[in-house]
């Protein structure tokens, strides 16, 4: 009853984006994929959503051969970094999209769809904005419309690509707490991609730290803070590698190949 990712690999042209990634996400878990850009976290998320195809590997979800399902049959609620709202539709029609396109047999009645839209608008605290167009909303509001649209299809899991990336710091903080609360109410298995370690450590139940197409460590935020498994993880989290006999040798972390090496040396002053 969980999501099991087994040695998934993916190449773009000749660039290996994922080099055999294995990861188990317990049901109802709020999981962060944390890593620098180019680490493969977004590729993994897109493979889960069916927007990218894995070259190798298996994914099993709730007993389903996940990779064999076409994207449109997965019911994976995907929230895009730039939201990807349908710009020619009102907020309400955006949210109703996943229901409106169902074949007549399985489509809820008009009244039922309208009711669901109202419910979702209330859930994401956008009551009364159903008639607006996306261009008339703020970034935080668009983000929540995108979330409501993904939730409308009663998704099996929720996939969020840099959910707070395009927002300013203040909105980001508020939305973080709100999203965590929402997750607790819904209990959906949720995976989100981020490059911000604070965000990952503050929000997630489990954090998978990725680097150059591999997973370096999967752990709870407190384990991660206490015992980073590799110099890269320590460096990325802005800490020294733990372990017996490790002398806090400042230059040690700088020699790691992580792209954030520059920042750690700044911190070492």
């Amino acid at each position: 009853m969980s999501l099991v990712i087994d040695s998934v690999a993916k190449k773009f042209e000749r660039f290996p984006a994922l080099k055999g990634v294995s990861l188990t996400v317990p049901k109802g878990c709020f999981m962060a994929l944390l890593g620098p850009s180019g680490s493969g976290k977004t590729t993994l998320l897109r493979i889960l959503g069916g927007l990218e195809f894995a070259d190798l590997g298996h994914i099993n979800f709730d007993g389903l051969d996940w990779l064999a399902l076409p994207a449109r049959e997965r019911r994976a609620g995907f929230v895009f970094q730039q939201y990807a709202l349908f710009r020619h539709m009102t907020v309400a029609r955006n949210i109703a999209f996943g229901l409106n396109i169902r074949p007549r047999r399985t489509r809820p009645s008009r009244a039922e769809i309208a009711r669901r839209v109202e419910e979702l608008l209330a859930l994401v605290q956008l009551d009364g904005l159903g008639k607006r167009y996306p261009s008339q909303l703020s970034g935080g509001q668009r983000q929540r419309v995108a979330l409501a649209r993904a939730l409308a299809i009663e998704p099996r899991m929720l996939l969020l690509d840099e959910p707070f990336g395009a927002l300013d710091a203040k909105v980001r903080k508020d939305l973080r707490h709100w999203l965590r609360g929402l997750h607790e109410r819904l209990g959906l298995t949720t995976i989100f991609v981020t490059h911000d370690q604070d965000e990952a450590l503050e929000l997630a139940d489990l954090v998978a730290v990725m680097n150059q197409g591999r997973i370096e460590q999967v752990a709870t935020p407190s384990e991660l803070r206490g015992a980073p498994a590799s110099p890269f993880v320590a460096d990325f989290l802005g800490q020294e590698p733990a372990g017996p006999g490790v002398v806090p040798l400042r230059t040690g972390s700088r020699s790691s190949p992580g792209p954030r090496g520059g920042e750690s040396s700044f911190q070492a002053r």
């Binding site: 959503g49 449109r72 049959e73 995907f78 990807a84 349908f86 999209f97 396109i101 649209r149 993904a150």
Partner: peptide, 25 residues
Amino acid sequence: RDEEEAAVSLGASGWSTFFRVTLPN
């Protein structure tokens, strides 16, 4: 192609993606 990808992930077929998202845009 973001909006098309969003449509597909919401369960739309190729045709309905074209006629409901791409063409209106």
